[in-house]
Amino acid sequence: MDYKSIEEVVLKALAAVLKCEVTSDFSRENTPQWDSLKHIEVIFTVEDELDIQFTEDEMGGLDSVSSIVGTILTRHAT
C-alpha cells in the first residue's frame, strides 16, 4: 500500500471515531477531542481495516495522522 491509500484509511478511522471532518494535519496535540480513549478506538479501527497489529512500543508514538501512516509504511517496508 502507498502513503495515500494508508492515509485515506487513517482519516476514515479518525473521522468515524471523532465524529467530525478530519484532515491530514490532525494530531493529538492540535485536536482536543482525540483523547486517550478515542486514541485506542482509532488504533483498533486502523488495525481492523488494514489487518495489522501495532506493538506496545509503536502505540506510544502514534500521535498524529502522519506518524500512524509512517509507522505502517515502515512495517510494509521491512
Binding site: 486517550s36 480513549l37 486514541h39 485506542i40 483498533f44 481492523d48 501495532f54 506493538t55 506496545e56
Partner: peptide, 16 residues
Amino acid sequence: SRSAALAGTPLSSFAQ
C-alpha cells in the same frame, strides 16, 4: 495487554 493502559480495560479490540 496493549489496551489496558490507554483504554482502562484489558479487553481486546475484537472482544469489545
